[in-house]
Simulated assay, not measured.
Amino acid sequence: MPGNEAWLIGEHRSTGERKYYLSNLPADTSLRLLASAIKARWVCEQAHQQLKEELGLDHFEGRSWTGLHWHALMSMMAYAFLLSRRLTAVGRKKKSHRPTITAQSASNTTGHS
Protein backbone atom coordinates (compact mmCIF):
# COMPACT_ATOMS: atom_id res chain seq x y z
CA MET A 1 0.00 0.00 0.00
CA PRO A 2 1.24 3.52 -0.73
CA GLY A 3 0.74 4.66 2.85
CA ASN A 4 -0.16 3.46 6.30
CA GLU A 5 -3.44 5.37 6.31
CA ALA A 6 -6.74 4.51 4.68
CA TRP A 7 -9.47 7.03 3.98
CA LEU A 8 -13.22 6.56 3.99
CA ILE A 9 -14.78 8.74 1.30
CA GLY A 10 -18.50 9.48 1.32
CA GLU A 11 -20.58 10.56 -1.65
CA HIS A 12 -24.02 12.08 -1.22
CA ARG A 13 -25.89 11.96 -4.51
CA SER A 14 -28.70 14.32 -5.50
CA THR A 15 -31.11 11.35 -5.35
CA GLY A 16 -30.43 11.02 -1.62
CA GLU A 17 -28.37 7.87 -2.15
CA ARG A 18 -25.12 7.60 -0.22
CA LYS A 19 -22.04 5.74 -1.42
CA TYR A 20 -18.86 5.03 0.51
CA TYR A 21 -15.41 4.18 -0.78
CA LEU A 22 -12.15 3.18 0.87
CA SER A 23 -8.90 4.66 -0.43
CA ASN A 24 -5.24 4.36 0.45
CA LEU A 25 -4.11 7.31 -1.67
CA PRO A 26 -1.90 9.90 0.07
CA ALA A 27 -3.64 12.59 2.14
CA ASP A 28 -2.54 15.38 -0.21
CA THR A 29 -4.28 13.80 -3.24
CA SER A 30 -6.50 16.33 -5.01
CA LEU A 31 -10.26 15.88 -4.87
CA ARG A 32 -10.38 15.70 -8.68
CA LEU A 33 -7.86 12.84 -8.81
CA LEU A 34 -9.65 11.03 -5.99
CA ALA A 35 -13.01 11.34 -7.75
CA SER A 36 -11.58 10.15 -11.08
CA ALA A 37 -10.03 7.09 -9.39
CA ILE A 38 -13.35 6.25 -7.74
CA LYS A 39 -15.33 6.66 -10.98
CA ALA A 40 -12.78 4.63 -12.99
CA ARG A 41 -13.72 1.62 -10.90
CA TRP A 42 -17.23 1.68 -12.39
CA VAL A 43 -15.81 0.97 -15.86
CA CYS A 44 -13.94 -2.07 -14.55
CA GLU A 45 -17.05 -3.36 -12.79
CA GLN A 46 -19.14 -2.98 -15.95
CA ALA A 47 -16.55 -4.86 -18.02
CA HIS A 48 -16.44 -7.68 -15.46
CA GLN A 49 -20.23 -7.91 -15.42
CA GLN A 50 -20.37 -8.09 -19.22
CA LEU A 51 -17.65 -10.76 -19.26
CA LYS A 52 -19.74 -12.87 -16.90
CA GLU A 53 -23.16 -12.28 -18.47
CA GLU A 54 -22.36 -12.17 -22.18
CA LEU A 55 -19.20 -14.25 -22.55
CA GLY A 56 -19.43 -16.90 -19.87
CA LEU A 57 -16.48 -15.94 -17.69
CA ASP A 58 -18.28 -17.48 -14.72
CA HIS A 59 -18.99 -20.81 -16.48
CA PHE A 60 -15.55 -22.31 -16.00
CA GLU A 61 -15.69 -25.78 -14.44
CA GLY A 62 -12.09 -26.88 -14.81
CA ARG A 63 -9.71 -28.04 -12.13
CA SER A 64 -6.43 -26.32 -12.92
CA TRP A 65 -5.03 -22.81 -12.71
CA THR A 66 -3.82 -23.15 -16.27
CA GLY A 67 -7.33 -23.96 -17.45
CA LEU A 68 -8.80 -21.05 -15.50
CA HIS A 69 -6.23 -18.65 -16.93
CA TRP A 70 -6.87 -19.97 -20.45
CA HIS A 71 -10.64 -19.55 -20.02
CA ALA A 72 -10.22 -16.01 -18.63
CA LEU A 73 -7.85 -15.08 -21.47
CA MET A 74 -10.23 -16.36 -24.15
CA SER A 75 -13.15 -14.52 -22.53
CA MET A 76 -11.18 -11.27 -22.41
CA MET A 77 -10.06 -11.63 -26.01
CA ALA A 78 -13.66 -12.18 -27.10
CA TYR A 79 -14.70 -9.14 -25.05
CA ALA A 80 -12.00 -6.98 -26.66
CA PHE A 81 -13.10 -8.12 -30.12
CA LEU A 82 -16.78 -7.41 -29.45
CA LEU A 83 -15.98 -4.04 -27.91
CA SER A 84 -13.91 -3.05 -30.94
CA ARG A 85 -16.80 -4.06 -33.22
CA ARG A 86 -19.26 -1.98 -31.16
CA LEU A 87 -16.99 1.06 -31.23
CA THR A 88 -16.50 0.69 -34.99
CA ALA A 89 -20.27 0.54 -35.49
CA VAL A 90 -20.74 3.67 -33.38
CA GLY A 91 -18.06 5.44 -35.43
CA ARG A 92 -19.84 4.51 -38.65
CA LYS A 93 -23.15 5.88 -37.35
CA LYS A 94 -21.53 9.19 -36.42
CA LYS A 95 -19.95 9.50 -39.86
CA SER A 96 -23.22 8.74 -41.65
CA HIS A 97 -25.04 11.56 -39.77
CA ARG A 98 -22.63 14.21 -41.10
CA PRO A 99 -24.00 16.34 -43.93
CA THR A 100 -22.61 15.38 -47.30
CA ILE A 101 -21.00 17.97 -49.54
CA THR A 102 -22.11 17.96 -53.14
CA ALA A 103 -19.75 18.67 -56.00
CA GLN A 104 -21.40 22.05 -56.63
CA SER A 105 -21.12 23.24 -53.00
CA ALA A 106 -17.55 21.90 -52.75
CA SER A 107 -16.49 23.95 -55.77
CA ASN A 108 -18.04 27.07 -54.25
CA THR A 109 -16.21 26.65 -50.94
CA THR A 110 -12.81 26.46 -52.61
CA GLY A 111 -13.30 29.83 -54.24
CA HIS A 112 -13.51 28.45 -57.79
CA SER A 113 -16.67 29.00 -59.80
Rank of each mutant, 00 (worst) to 15 (best):
Ser107Cys: 08
Leu51His: 00
Leu82Ile: 09
Gly56Asn: 12
His48Gly: 01
Pro2His: 13
Lys19Arg: 13
Glu53Val: 09
His48Asp: 07
Met74Cys: 12
Met74Leu: 15
Ile38Thr: 00
Arg98Tyr: 09
Pro2Asp: 08
Pro2Lys: 12
Gln50Tyr: 06
Leu22Ala: 06
Arg18Met: 09
Ser75Asp: 00
Ser84Tyr: 08
Lys93Pro: 00
Met77Gly: 04
Pro99Trp: 04
Arg86Pro: 03
Lys93Asn: 08
Ala37Asp: 01
Met77Tyr: 03
Arg92Ala: 07
His97Cys: 14
His59Trp: 15
Ala37Phe: 03
Phe81Gly: 04
Arg41Asn: 14
Glu11Cys: 07
Ala40Tyr: 05
Leu25Ala: 14
Cys44Thr: 09
Thr100His: 11
Cys44His: 07
Thr100Leu: 06
His71Lys: 04
Gly91Leu: 01
Val90Trp: 10
Arg86Leu: 08
His12Ala: 09
Met77Ala: 15
Ser14Lys: 14
His59Leu: 13
Gly3Val: 11
Ser84Phe: 10
Ser75Thr: 14
Lys19Tyr: 13
Glu45Cys: 05
Ser96Trp: 08
His71Trp: 13
His12Val: 12
Ile9Met: 00
Gly62Val: 03
Arg32Gly: 00
Thr88Tyr: 11
Asn24Ser: 10
Asn108Leu: 07
Thr29Gly: 01
His97Tyr: 15
Ser107Pro: 02
Gln104Ile: 12
His12Cys: 13
Ala27Trp: 07
Ser30Gln: 04
His12Pro: 00
Leu51Tyr: 00
Asp28Asn: 14
Thr109Trp: 13
Gly67Phe: 02
Pro99His: 05
Ser14Trp: 09
Ser23His: 02
Asn24Thr: 13
Lys52Phe: 03
Arg92Trp: 06
Leu31Lys: 08
Ser23Glu: 02
Met1Gln: 08
Ser96Ala: 12
Ala106Asn: 07
Tyr79Ser: 03
Asp28Trp: 09
Asn108Lys: 11
Glu45Lys: 05
Leu51Thr: 01
Glu11Lys: 10
Ser96Phe: 03
Thr66Ser: 15
Lys93Ser: 10
Ser84Leu: 12
Ala35Trp: 09
Gly10Tyr: 04
Leu22Gln: 06
Leu31Cys: 10
Arg92Pro: 00
Leu8Val: 06
Ile9Leu: 03
Val43Ile: 12
Arg18Gln: 06
Ser84Gln: 11
Trp7Asp: 00
Leu33Ala: 15
